[in-house]
Structures are given as C-alpha cells and as structure tokens.
C-alpha cells in the first residue's frame, strides 16, 4: 500500500527545547492511523509541521506527494485541538465558508453542509447561530467543516476531547465513514480506547521521539499478559511458577492475597495457571488478562502516574 504521508527524521526545536526529535513514520493511503502520546509528547507540533503551519527544524515530510502541506491544503481536512468557529454564523454558513476556502463552490458547500448536518442529526440546528449550539454539536459542525470538501487526507487533533460518550461514538462512526469513502485519517489522542477500536495503525510518541509504529495488535504484543491470582498464596510461590516475569501484591488480608502476575514475553498464561493448580497452591480465584493498547502505551511511553514503578520494572 502506498503512503499518503511520510515523515523522515523530522525534528522541531523551539529555542532550546526539542519538541520533536528524529521522527519517522508512514501512514498508508486509505488507513486510519492513531497518533498517540501523552500530553506534551509533540503530537500537535508534528501535526502542524505536516500541515505546513510550522516549518520543521530538520527532516523531510511528504504528504500526498508534496513536500509541504501548504501545497496540497485543498486536499487536506484539519480539525485542530482547540476548536472554534465564527459564533455569529449559522452552521451552514460556517461549513460553506470553510469549504469555499478549500475550493468548494458556495452553493455546493451549502448543499453538502445541509446533507451532512442532517446525517449527523443536526438538521434542526441548521439555522441556529454557532453560539447557540452545545459543545458536542459545535464540534460535529467543525468536523463537518473540516471534511465538507471531501479531502483525501484528514488530520484530527484530539477529536474526542470534551465529548460525551454518545458524541464520541458518533465521531468514531464519522471517522470510519471517512475511511470507508477512501480518505486517509490521522488523528491524535491520548485516549487509547478510541485508537484501539478505530486504528489500522498507531504511532506512539513519547518526549518527542517515536516509541512505536505498527498495528494495534503489534502494539499490544509489546506488552505482557497479566494473570491475577487470589488466595492464600505467597508472592515467592507465585514467582516460582513457570512463565512468570514479575509479581505484585495488590492486597493482603490475613494471608489471603490478590497477586498480579506479569507473564514473561511469549507466555500464554495457561501453563502458569495449570502449574499453580498442580503445585497445590490455594487458588480461590483467577483472571487471565489480555494486554490492551493502554497497557502497551504505558509500557512503551512509561507515562502512567497511577501505575507503581514496580510494574514497569517487572515488565522490563
């Protein structure tokens, strides 16, 4: 599959601060790519460089065959992290205006705006002023404004932030619809569930550097499985089981413990569980957990304030 976007050794420096360092990745045409990373990882800076809003300090960017996003801006749709539309315009006017800036004739822009608003359940809001719409509605309108000209490449910066679960689901459907229509979608987020459900590919960024590039499954595979055991089991006994990389005691009530057993890379967990029963350990409950993208994210970026340091050490 050919790439709609290629970054090669791209760096961005603000004064003495390196926001993005030596970043390289590709986004295949027609795919949905999640651009993941904790806050301050350099996601927005990267997206701005891709769009040509900010020049890269070094490196090469190729988007839709052009070396600068500005040269193909009419073929790109962009939803920035901080949203805003003209408050005194109606949704139809706002969508048609931004469509016109991308080369869409005004009458066609208005026609498509009405259709898309209807599709998104905003038919009744067509004649209202933007300032009268709820945040979720305004966000949908802004997304429609970003894609009304049917771009080949859609860049969404934190599109789910500030939306309630209902609107998040609606937005996911919109993104799937864009990809189904042949557009390439690159969206940044730090909410892993959306990426896990949507993305064909993810790129993880940490402290300005790429921490991972691949499919969601490949990302998950970087994180070990976890076996939760409950019973009168000592951590030492659990640690002696086959395929165990580390043990963490989650709770201990008069010798009855909840243990989190981090399995070694490649270990499926069944052998470990079988060995636990066969060795006569007092197993009163168990759960075998598949790694999530969230786990992979934490493992790859080391960025989880809730997670104790022992977990990271155990994984390593």
């Amino acid at each position: 599959m050919t790439a709609a976007l290629t970054l090669e050794s791209v760096s961005k420096r603000y004064g003495g601060f390196d926001a993005v360092r030596d970043l390289s990745f590709e986004v295949p045409k027609g795919s949905i790519c999640g651009f993941l990373g904790p806050n301050g990882a350099g996601k927005t800076s990267t997206l701005r460089m891709i769009l040509g809003l900010q020049p890269a300090t070094s490196g090469r960017i190729d988007i839709l065959g052009a070396p600068d996003g500005r040269l193909v801006r009419d073929r790109i749709g962009f939803l920035p992290e901080e949203r805003g539309l003209y408050k005194k315009m109606t949704p139809v006017e706002a969508i048609a205006f931004f469509g016109a800036l991308k080369g869409l004739p005004s009458h066609e822009g208005k026609k498509r705006a009405r259709q898309l608003l209807e599709q998104q359940g905003l038919g009744a809001a067509q004649k209202k002023k933007m300032k009268e719409l709820s945040k979720g509605m305004a966000q949908k309108v802004q997304l429609i404004a970003a894609v009304v000209h049917r771009p080949e490449f859609v860049i969404l910066d934190e599109p789910f932030s500030g939306l309630d679960p209902m609107n998040q689901q609606g937005l996911e459907e919109m993104i799937r619809g864009l990809a189904a229509d042949g557009a390439t979608v690159l969206f940044s987020t730090h909410v892993m569930q959306h990426a896990e459900r949507l993305c064909d590919k993810v790129v993880l960024l940490a402290k300005g550097r790429k921490a991972f590039e691949g499919t969601v499954e490949e990302a998950k595979a970087t994180s070990p499985r976890v076996l939760d055991l409950e019973g009168a089991i000592s951590p030492e006994a659990a640690g002696a089981l086959p395929g165990v990389a580390g043990v963490e005691t989650l709770s201990d009530q008069d010798g009855v413990r909840r243990l989190k057993i981090v399995l070694a890379a490649g270990a499926g967990g069944q052998d470990t569980l079988k060995a636990a029963f066969l060795s006569g350990l007092d197993v009163r409950g168990f759960a075998l957990k598949e790694p999530t993208l969230h786990d992979a994210f934490i493992g790859l970026t080391g960025d989880n304030p809730d997670q104790p340091a022992v977990r990271a050490e155990a994984v390593q």
């Binding site: 920035p80 003209y86 970003a146």
Partner: peptide, 16 residues
Amino acid sequence: EEKSNKILEVLLSSAS
C-alpha cells in the same frame, strides 16, 4: 476575536 475563539488555526490550515 478569532484568536480567542480558536478560529485562526483553522483558517491557517485553509489559507496562508
């Protein structure tokens, strides 16, 4: 107004 309403960035992605 455009800066405070976060419109400038959207505009910049559509025009120089």
